[in-house]
Design a protein around this nucleic acid. Sequence first.
DNA 1: TTTCTATATTGCAATATTACGATATTATTT
DNA 2: AAATAATATCGTAATATTGCAATATAGAAA
Lengths: 110, 110
Amino acid sequence: MGASKTDEYSQQQISLAAMFKALGHPARVAIIQFILKAESCICGDIVNELPLSQPTVSQHLKELKSAGIIQGNVEGNAICYCLNDKTVKLLKDYFGSLIDQIQLKNSNCC
Amino acid sequence: MGASKTDEYSQQQISLAAMFKALGHPARVAIIQFILKAESCICGDIVNELPLSQPTVSQHLKELKSAGIIQGNVEGNAICYCLNDKTVKLLKDYFGSLIDQIQLKNSNCC
DNA sequence: TTTCTATATTGCAATATTACGATATTATTT
DNA sequence: AAATAATATCGTAATATTGCAATATAGAAA
């Protein structure tokens, strides 16, 4: 009869997946890197940096924002996008805990 | 004239995005967690644990594997899937470096 | 060699993502 | 109040993902 199926996914699973999904496109990884590299984090020129149109970049920014990876700040006419350090820390800790769990069970069949 | 567009994405950006994309689905996050939780890492019963058909689980496993998140080991009739600790460490370090970079530039406009 | 068990592949329908031109919005400057 | 500049939204075409039933494959057991 086997184990019973979990009817759905946990909230943590859903929310983690949403963050990873947001990061799962080269353009969005590039946006993250550009935000970190840029002198100030006034980031309207992401559009100039990426090989994509303005609407497309705007859409990618929206996805990063709604997943909580970045935050936007209205700065006069422009908008300043920055990384959400709380989310980044959460993700770092998540992978840290995975490593801990891997090391705990040293029944390594692979 | 503004900055010139990067013609394409870097290999690092593409490869990071592929790993995140592989993790960007609740079923695949659940698979990771199950592999870690399970007594041994003989994992045919992932199918019994998840609310998905066997072909669908197999497909998710394939995606995780080809992104280098997990590895599969033939074990007689069954296959044992385990996390690739090298990849997990790489991702942990990636977020660690993001945090470092955030802290370096304390010109926080957000 | 036949049967059984575990996993993978194929084919396909439903849905989601990606990208962009056109247009809307909002704040600034004139 | 225009005109300008920066960003967002809409509509839509092309493509990719998700999920499953049906089927294939490969090893173990009989």
